[in-house]
Every structure is written in C-alpha cells, then in structure tokens.
Design a protein around this nucleic acid. Structure first.
Lengths: 340, 340
DNA sequence: TTGTACGCGTTATCAG
DNA sequence: CTGATAACGCGTACAA
C-alpha cells in the first residue's frame, strides 16, 4: 500500500503538491499535475481515509442502530438509508441490536470511537441512557421510527393515529360497522388504538372493548394466535384492522382453519404493505408506509445536519391505502357482484 | 471531545502511561492506574479509533458487498455476518449494489480508502475486475454465495447440485415420477438443473426437456408466470421443484387461478426456507439453507484470516429438507389418509 | 515505574 | 507555483 510520500518521490515533487492535486485545489502547473497523476496511477495510490479523518475531523461514515434486524420492515428502511447515504458519499456501519438490549451502549461507544459523522437510530423509542450518550457524542442524530417520538431530536416518522384512522375509515366506507383490531400491546396508550377509536366515534359507531385485542409481537404466529382470540371475543365482527402484514397473513391462515373466509366473511386491512401483502391469498389491502423513502429522508437529514451544523426539522411521512382483495363491501346486494 | 493528552494532564502523568493503562499493558502502579481511570471517567475519554488505526494498521472494520439488498435472502446472510462480526469486535460497513453494477468498483475503492480489515462479497459470481481489485487491496476476502464458486478465494457456499438432487429425490420418494422444475436461467449449465436431471436418472425416470422451465428471476411474479408456463408445457406433472420460496408462493397463487390444488394435484418443494415458507397456504415443504449460519461462518473466516494472516479453507454448508404441507404421497390409496 | 520523542499518512500554513 | 513543517491522536522503543 503506497502513501502520498511514494507518489511525491516518484513524481519528483513534494507531498504538499500531491495533496493539492489529489484534493484538486489550485496552485500547480499542468505539467506537474500530469506527472503526479501518472505516478498515482502507476503506484495505484489511494489516500488513507484514516489519516484524512484524523485531520479533517470527518470520516464520511454514519452509524445505523436497528433493532429487529430480521424483518422486512427494517430492511426497507435500511435500504433507503444506504442508498441515499452512498449518494452523498457516506458509508454506513450497521449495528443490529436485536430487541434493543444491552448491546446498544456498546455499539454507541464503538461508533463514537470510530468518530462517525452521524447516527441514525431506528426504533420505537429512545432510552434516556442512549439519548444522554448521543448528546455527548455531539454528532447529528436522527430518529427513524413509527411509534412515539422524541422531540428533542429530529426524526422521521409516520402519524400512527392518522394511519389507524384511515384504515378504519376505509372499512367504514365499505359499509362495515362491527370492526375488530389487533393492536400492539405496549405500556401506555397506543396511538393506533386511539385512531381506531376516533374513527369509530366520528362515524357514530360505539366503541366496544371486546373488539380490540393486544398482540405481543408483529409476526405471523402472533397473527394466527391473536386473530383466533379476537374471533372468540367478538365473533360478530365483519372486518378487522391488523397492524402488520405478517400478522394479517397469519390471521388469514387462522381464519382458514376456523372456516372463516376472507374477505367474504371478514375483511382485513393491514399495515406496512410489505412484499408479503402482495403474495398472500387473497392479496392484502393495506395501509402503505413509504419505508424506503423514510430511510432516504433520514439519511438526507443527517447529511444536511453534517453539512450545515444545524439541527433539521422532523418529518411526518404520508401514508396511503393500497386496495387489493382482502376487503370487500358489506352490503349483501353488492357482495354478489363484487369479486369478493 | 477529549484526547489522551487531556487525560494525561488531568492525571498528572505522561500520555505513555495513559496509553499503557488504556490498552492494559503492564508497567504502572495501582495508584497511577486509579488516578488515570478516574481522569478518563471524568473527562469521558474515548480513544480515537482513527489515530489507533493509523498506527496499528487495523481498523476493526470489515466491508460487505451485497447485491439485491431487498430480499429476505440477503437479509439473513447479513444478519449472520453482523452478529458474528460484532462478537469479534468488528464493525461492518454495508455496500448495497443492486444488481451488481457499476457502483461496485466505487464501493471497493471506498472500502480500500477506509482501510477495512477484510471484505465479504455476497453474490453468485465474482467479476474478474473485482477480483483483481481485491487482490491488490491485499486484505482477507471471502465469498459468500450459492451458485458457482471461485476457488481462488475462500468461500462459504452450499452444494446446489446436491440440493437439487435432494429435493427431487424427496419428490421421488413420495411416489412422484413426472416432476417439473422451475430453474434459473443463466449462461452456461445450471448446477441445480444438473442435480434435478441426475436424481431422475438415478431413479430410472427419463428426463423430459419440457418439464423444466427457466426463470429470469426469483420473485413472486416470476413464480406465477413460470409456473403457468410450466403447466402449459407439461400438464401431466404431479410435482415440481421450484428454486425459491417466493416463486413457490407465486406458483401456488398461479395454481389457484388455474384450478390446480396444491398439493392435491401437484406437489411443490421449494428452496431456501425463508419465513414465507411457513406463511403460505399450504405451508411450503422446502430445502432449508442455513443462511444465518452461512453469514456467521463467512464473518468467522475473515476474522480468522485477519488474525492468522493465512487464507482460510472454503466451506460447503449442509442443507436439509423441512417437510411441511406442500408435498404429498402420490399413491391414491395413501392420499386418502394423508392430510394432503 | 515513568517520561520523551518519533512515526503513522494527511492537510494546511507558512515561506520562498 | 512549490516545498518545508507543524499539527491531528495515538502507540512504542528507548532512556531515565
């Protein structure tokens, strides 16, 4: 591995001159430029980013903390981040912290030692401990998540209350009134459950506690388990809002075993709109989240913050409903005609 | 951000002493150690990895090149890599090169400039250009893939011919003889198609060109498209080997539209055994690849190479067949009893 | 046990 | 236009 010195020697110039040319500043003749470039090519010289970072105080590297690596959800976010980051000349170091555990502080330290230029934290919430640490790191941090948010730090999110509202409203517009929900069990009030309730109230449908069930996860198995529970508690529902695609697929499987036909007997609208939504039978009508773009936006924010030095605004991303085959009109007259 | 100097000053010792303590070498009294540690804690000192890397010539960072970021397949590999790498104190920089394009050389350069300690390249094959470059980088490189392999570099792979053989054999053992296959279209002979053919021959079943169809991708849509094509070309098959889970799910969807019941009319065995395999209806019988472990193994290899300085052996990982509900016995007598 | 001083590969500030 | 030379933050012989 050759250094700038080797190049200087081979080209018969000083290292300062080589540096100028490499960083294309001004102050050299065409002639020397030619010589130096030739030497660089011949020696296959690559500047040492460590030395550069040491002096410039910029590493062109950011760190991404993401819990629950496995699922497609985080994947999409990460993909968006990576894409945008590389466009801006930033490398990304991934730190997968399954279920946001004790490892997180270790990762944060490593990122700090490596002097990353910024950090993106994916996750539903930010532990106080992490917040204190990144604050001391004094580098741009942006939060990327979908649940609560922490307005001490710039973030990119979606409005979960509005999303739930949209989803339930969609069901209502299709003629449903007895609507169930599989929500996520968390400490404190759930924004999604709120949105669900509000949508009902705004449409003069009375809220029934029996029709909402709280899952402990977002996976397929949770879907089959909690859909069964839901149907036991509220057998009269004609539709359900289920907060993840995988769970929705699980629900369809459970329904199948229960002899319930989707959407004929009960319509299902899901959340996220990942690839599976398009692969299930029937295809899932879902609230679509712009995951990829959210990742890109987060990367864009850190980049801006790195450039300007000033904090960025938070962003709420738009969602939309993608209609497919898991929801149908309730009215019997219509049902006959609809390809339900 | 404080430096080793600040610590030295605050503790009234030299930077050499601080350095010794930080890297816990020997040569200092308990007393000074206490003082220094106190100073470190107070100033919240974190060694600068750039400066360290500059002098130690080790960055404790590896790069991972992976094409087709999106799918769950690469995800699992990446997860395994990340897991093991962090266990060994290595950070991982991801470089996503959708469809292994021109960006790859750029990424390689960046990794080189950042002086990563090693590189893992995920992908079906290694372009000559990339090979030349990584060779000049003179850092450990391991290939992680599933198709061909390049014995100039250590790799971790699976034996695709053996896998296809197993899959088809499984079908044969279940009484099937007219077996179709959706293979991947590539330049040159396909290992999987080979294994398929060999399994047939070994069991005295004549190979029929019509029963094999070549897909241009691995996605759901490819599955629906090529399964239809397959059924058109070879309507008499009773089983099929399909080389990706997503495609298999697509095939089931296509079958559904064609009025073909899986596995009742045609059995399906798929490849990879990702999460979807467990989520489809019926659940997919599949050849399971130890993706996560493959990732871990790849990381382990680079780590070993970094430590020892000598090239590692290549590994062929074992596969297994996970029986679920998409394959059933052919014999009619049996079919009645089987939960097919 | 402890401190001094040099080098790692760059960039930037001066002179020339 | 060009070249010494001092940082950047750290590890490590070598000396004390």
């Amino acid at each position: 591995m050759h250094t700038i010195k080797d190049v200087a020697k081979k080209a018969n110039v000083s290292i300062a001159t080589v540096s100028r040319i490499v960083n294309n500043q001004s102050g050299y003749s065409e002639e020397t430029k030619r010589k130096v470039l030739a030497a660089i090519k011949e020696l296959n010289y690559q500047p040492n980013a460590l030395a550069r970072g040491l002096i410039n105080k910029r590493t062109h590297t950011i760190g991404v903390l993401l819990p629950h690596f496995i699922n497609a959800f985080g994947m999409e976010l990460l993909h968006g981040i990576e894409e945008k980051a590389h466009e801006e000349g930033l490398s990304v170091i991934i730190c997968s912290t399954d279920s946001f555990g004790a490892k997180t502080m270790k990762y944060l330290q490593v990122l700090n030692e490596k002097r990353v230029d910024g950090v993106i934290i994916i996750g539903p919430k930010l532990e106080e401990e992490y917040y204190d640490y990144v604050k001391r790191m004094a580098v741009p941090v942006v939060l990327l998540g979908t649940e609560k948010f922490d307005n001490r730090l710039p973030s990119v999110q979606v409005d979960n209350r509005a999303i739930a509202y949209s989803a339930v409203k969609h069901l209502i517009d299709k003629g449903h009134e007895r609507i169930g929900m599989i929500a996520f069990h968390e400490n404190g009030p759930s924004l999604r459950a709120d949105g669900y309730r509000k949508a009902l109230e705004d449409n003069d449908i009375i809220f029934n506690q029996e029709r909402i069930v709280f899952s402990s996860g977002f996976a397929f198995e949770d879907g089959v388990h909690f859909f069964r529970k839901l149907m036991l508690q509220a057998p009269d529902i004609t539709a359900a809002y289920i907060i993840s695609d995988e769970m929705a697929v699980g629900a369809i499987t459970a329904a199948d075993r229960l002899g319930i036909k989707v959407p004929h007997d009960v319509s299902i609208i899901s959340h996220d709109n990942l690839r599976v939504a398009d692969m299930s039978i029937p295809k899932l009508t879902a609230v679509s989240l712009p995951l990829r773009r959210m990742g890109r936006t987060a990367a864009e924010k850190v980049f801006q913050m790195i450039q300007t030095g000033r904090p960025s605004e938070s962003s709420i991303m738009q969602h939309e409903i993608v209609e497919r085959d898991s929801v149908c009109m309730l009215a019997k007259a219509v049902r006959a005609k609809q390809p339900c």
